[in-house]
Nucleic acid binder design. Sequence first.
DNA 1: TTAGGGATATTG
DNA 2: CAATATCCCTAA
Length: 364
Amino acid sequence: MPPLAAADAFRVLEFVAGNRRVPHSLLAGLLAALPPVSPHTSPRLRKAIALRALDAALSGSDADGSGEVLRKARDVLADPGVAACFPDHLAVVRDDVAALRRLVDAEWESLPPSELELEADRIAGAGALDTWANADQDTRKKLRRLGESTAREILGKLGQDPSKAPQVDEAANAPSTSGVNEGDRAQQDDEAHLGMGKGEASLAQEDCARHQQEPVERTTDARIPEKLVTSAATKGKEQATSSHVTGQAAPDHNKSHPVTGPKPSLMERKPSAIVYQWDSGDSDSERPPHQRRLPNYERRMRPPPAVPYKTRKKWTEIQERTLIEGVDKYGKGNWKDIKIAYPDVFQDRSTVDMKDKFRNMGRH
DNA sequence: TTAGGGATATTG
DNA sequence: CAATATCCCTAA
């Protein structure tokens, strides 16, 4: 794949960064893989990055009353580049972590729509009719082609009869509707599979909930997004991404998949793929084309917990010692018994976690 | 449920 | 970039 044009890289980053449910690791990967993007052209991007830093700072537990969380949050806000993203009211919250969290939530909610969303709206959403009306012949041809080819590709993948694809003349009346139509159908199909299979989408939500009621102590995690902010948002220019290597994301993935036939199609869902979806249950495809809507951006982020993504939990000394003791007493392999024997030590560890941990403790 | 192979994140 | 730690998938 040719390297992404800078303008497109910008669209991708601006869109992704503003989605709170996308983990910082994923965003960091994008930053590294895409052409350099200056955040200065987009208030949304600047703000999203700043909010991510705040999220990281606020992600710790403040139950210990140490004020650690608040201190970290203030550090982030002390950065003039971050502070500039917010009208004074965010900085005004001096020592109320809960209030600060609420304000951060609100700021996330009020993030302006990304250019990508606006663009999509122009092509396939409520703005589609205008776009079509204003398009010249060439543009209309392109729009129509986009719809048809997308439909064919998806239908082919689903093994359905391509002749059932929406008619071309329909597309001539309303731009790109065939694409949207089939896109919707494919998406519903995807969701159905997920639902019957593993329900990854809802798992993601359980994760959110779990993290809300059970904040993990994380002393180091604040660093990553903070780095993003200080280098990408505040210090200006493009140093944040200047040392990146383009197009390096893929190679590692393939090495573990020995060449067992043709390359997997791009349409194939990676089993490990995670779905970040819009609102559930839009059955937009029944509506007349001009009434279809993309979900609007204010409602986009469902339950907006702080730190919505799963974090790695380091094993504590107590856990390690207890694990060894358990293995002594119950024997290696009886992870279930051990877990039951020390319920509070291993409350947030699965038997698989324990097995894995013991395995890699034994490796030295 | 468990073992083992891998993917992914973190650290050196 | 290699080594390590944690987490995830899947066969049995």
